[in-house]
Simulated scan of single mutants.
Amino acid sequence: MDLCESTPCATLKGIAVDLGISRGALKEWVDKLGSGTTAIGGVAASDGSCPDSQAARVVRLEAENTALKAEARRLETERDILRQAAKYFAGETNW
C-alpha cells in the first residue's frame, strides 16, 4: 500500500507488473486497505504525462536499470545456450 501511495502517477496495472502479481490481486489489497483509486500516486498533467519528483524519478530509473540488467542476463544466457546447441549439432553432422 505504501508503494502505491508513494509512487507518483502509478497505476494498479503498472505496480502489479513491477511486483509480478495480477492487477486483480493488487486491487483487492488496495481496496481492503482503503484506497480504491486506479491512479494511485500523483495527478497526471493535461497532456497525459506525469510530473515526477527528483526522488521518484531516481527510484523509477533505478528500477528500470535493474530490470534491464536482468533482461540482459537472461538474453546472454539464452545466447550461450544457443551457441552450445549449435556447436553440439554441428559436431553431430557426419554425413
Rank of each mutant, 00 (worst) to 15 (best):
M1P: 00
C4Y: 00
C4P: 03
C4H: 03
S6P: 00
S6Q: 01
S6H: 06
S6K: 01
T7L: 00
P8L: 04
P8D: 01
C9K: 07
C9L: 08
C9N: 08
A10E: 08
T11F: 07
T11E: 07
T11L: 10
L12Y: 04
L12A: 11
K13E: 11
K13P: 03
K13R: 06
K13H: 04
K13Y: 06
K13Q: 08
K13D: 08
A16E: 02
V17F: 01
V17H: 04
D18Y: 03
L19Q: 09
G20D: 08
I21W: 00
S22T: 10
S22Q: 00
R23P: 05
A25N: 14
A25T: 13
A25R: 14
A25P: 01
A25F: 14
L26E: 04
K27T: 14
K27S: 15
W29M: 02
V30M: 11
V30Q: 11
D31V: 12
D31I: 09
D31Y: 03
K32P: 10
K32N: 13
L33F: 12
L33H: 13
G34V: 00
G34C: 04
S35D: 15
S35Y: 10
G36K: 09
G36V: 14
G36Q: 10
T37L: 08
T37V: 13
T37S: 10
T38M: 09
A39T: 08
A39Y: 12
G42P: 03
G42S: 09
V43R: 14
V43D: 12
V43E: 14
V43W: 11
A44F: 15
S46D: 10
S46M: 09
D47F: 02
D47S: 04
D47I: 03
C50M: 04
C50N: 01
P51N: 11
P51C: 13
D52L: 15
D52R: 15
D52C: 15
Q54A: 07
Q54G: 11
Q54R: 08
Q54F: 10
Q54Y: 04
Q54S: 13
A55D: 10
A56S: 02
V58E: 11
V59Y: 01
R60K: 06
R60W: 00
R60C: 04
L61C: 13
L61W: 07
E62H: 06
A63F: 07
A63T: 07
E64V: 08
N65R: 13
N65W: 09
N65H: 12
T66S: 10
A67V: 01
A67R: 07
A67Q: 04
K69L: 06
K69A: 11
K69G: 07
A70M: 13
E71P: 04
E71L: 03
A72R: 13
R73T: 09
R73H: 14
R73P: 05
R74A: 10
R74F: 01
L75A: 12
L75R: 15
L75S: 11
E76D: 13
E76A: 14
T77Y: 07
T77D: 06
T77V: 05
E78T: 05
E78W: 01
R79C: 06
D80P: 01
I81E: 08
L82Y: 11
Q84M: 05
Q84K: 05
A85L: 05
A86N: 13
A86I: 11
K87G: 05
F89V: 06
F89L: 02
A90C: 06
A90E: 07
A90M: 06
G91L: 07
E92F: 15
T93I: 14
T93Q: 12
N94L: 05
N94V: 01
N94M: 07
N94R: 03
W95V: 11
